[in-house]
Every structure is written in C-alpha cells, then in structure tokens.
Computed example of a mutant assay.
Amino acid sequence: MKRGRLKRPMRGIPARAIIPNAITVLALCMGLSAVRFALAGQWETALTFIVIAGVLDGFDGRVARLLNGQTRFGAELDSLSDVIAFGVAPSLVVYLWSLETMPRYGWIFALAFAAACALRLARFNASIDEDEQPHKSAGFLTGVPAPTAAGLLMFPIFLWLVTHEPLFRDFYVVAPWAALIAFLMVSNVATFSWSSIRLKRGMRFGALAGIAGMIAAIVTIPWIAFSALAVAYLISIPFSIASYAKVRRQRGPDEPSPDAA
C-alpha cells in the first residue's frame, strides 16, 4: 500500500503580499527621510515626507485586501513602520524644530510622544483592552490613530510656516501640545473612523466637491490646508464622543454595549 505524499507547508511570504509590504517599507523610509531633512533644517521637506508616509499607510492595507495578500508578517511590519514613521520621526522633527531649546525636559516630551505611539500600536495588536474600546461595528476607533496624531503633533509647525510667528515655535507651546496629543493617542476616547461617517443621498455630491476642493488646496496652499484639517479633526472629537454615547443609549441597558465586543 503506497503512502500518499505529504504536502509540505508553504513557507515564506506569498508573492501577492510583496507589493503591500513594499508600500509599507516605503512608508517607513519616508519617515526616516523626514528626520534626515529635519537635521538639515529643511522643515517643509521633512513634513512633506511624513505626509507621504501617511498617504502610503492608507494604501498598503487596501492593496493587501485587494490582492488577498494579508499576512501576519505584513501586519507586524505595518505596526513597526507606523511606530517609526508616525511616532519616532515626528517626535524627532518636533524636537529638532523646537523642543531641543527646552532646558533638560525637551527630550522627555519627544520621548513621551514616541512611546505613546508604540503603546497604542501594541495595544491595538494585542487587543489588551478589548473590553473597553468602542465596538468596531459601531464605527469608532479608540483614541487618535497614529498617522492622525503625527499630523496633529506637527500642527504648530504648519502654523509657523503659514504665519512665521515665533510663538508657535516656543517650547512653552509645543511641549504641552505634544503631551496632549500623546495622551489622546493612548486614551479611550471614541473617535470617528471612515466607517462611522454616513452621508445622506443629497449630500454626496457636495462632499465630493468638498474633497476636490481640499485636494486642490493641499496642492496649492498645503500648510494652510493641513492646518484646517487639523482644526477640523480636533473639533470632531467632542462630536464623536457624543455620537458614541448616543449609540450606547440606543442599545439600552439590556443589550451588550459597544464596549463588550
């Protein structure tokens, strides 16, 4: 009696996963390149590289799902890339731009932001607070996402580039701001995700026109546009908290709350 040949388990990364992983690595490289230009005092170029990293981060997951190339390796690589591109790189850029002038404690604020980013991503991967975070089916995120937090951290630099006002570069302004954004990253505050945004049929055309206008603004007046986006996101946080509270009330005391996923 012949024994059937045992199929060897496939090892390595499937070919379909190479493209999304390459995009993730490119985002990581963009973050590190931002530090290189910050060291040379080329602040606009440094910010541009971090923005490019954010755009790439938005594509890698979608490309992976499109190609059916989701892998555990890719998930771990994505988290590592996010820590560097949206945690380490922005904190170093802001430190070199402002916080290094703060006697003794400037580096602590830069470290706090990078550490908060790493903790947030570790919490997301391990789901250690699964019983406390808003239910994904309700369309909410827990805390501010890392790419968004990186953009918010650089908000004073955006304002400085627009106005050339020295106040925005003062560590008395930048240090508390960095601490606030680091806190929002690791907090349990419910924030909107794309899946939580529901547009009425009559508003869709206007929304598309608004997006087109924002893209045009980013191309022509980037730092003003990014400043406006940062302000809009900050304004949305109280509304996301209220919206999440409404979801909990609608589910009633007898139904499992979004926190009990």
Rank of each mutant, 00 (worst) to 15 (best):
Y95M: 03
N68L: 01
R120E: 04
D129K: 11
F59W: 11
D82V: 04
T101P: 00
F124C: 02
A115H: 00
Q133N: 09
F59K: 03
G58H: 10
V94C: 02
L56E: 10
L92I: 15
V55D: 03
A89H: 14
V63S: 09
F109A: 13
G54H: 12
I84V: 15
P103G: 02
V93E: 03
E76F: 08
L67I: 01
V83D: 09
S91A: 15
L80V: 12
N68Y: 00
L66D: 03
V83C: 12
V88H: 14
I52V: 15
G69V: 07
A64I: 02
A122V: 07
S98F: 03
I52H: 12
E132H: 05
P134T: 02
E132M: 06
A110T: 10
A110P: 04
I84P: 08
A114K: 07
L56N: 08
A89V: 14
F109H: 06
A112S: 08
D57I: 07
L66G: 07
L96T: 00
D60M: 10
N125D: 08
M102R: 06
A138S: 15
A116G: 15
A116C: 15
V63G: 05
P103M: 01
A126W: 10
R123K: 10
A110L: 09
F73M: 01
E130W: 07
F73K: 00
I52A: 15
I128H: 14
L121M: 06
H135G: 15
G87I: 11
E130I: 14
H135A: 14
L121T: 03
A116H: 13
I108A: 15
H135L: 11
L66T: 01
L92C: 13
I128S: 13
A85P: 12
F124G: 03
P134A: 01
Y105R: 00
R72F: 01
G106H: 01
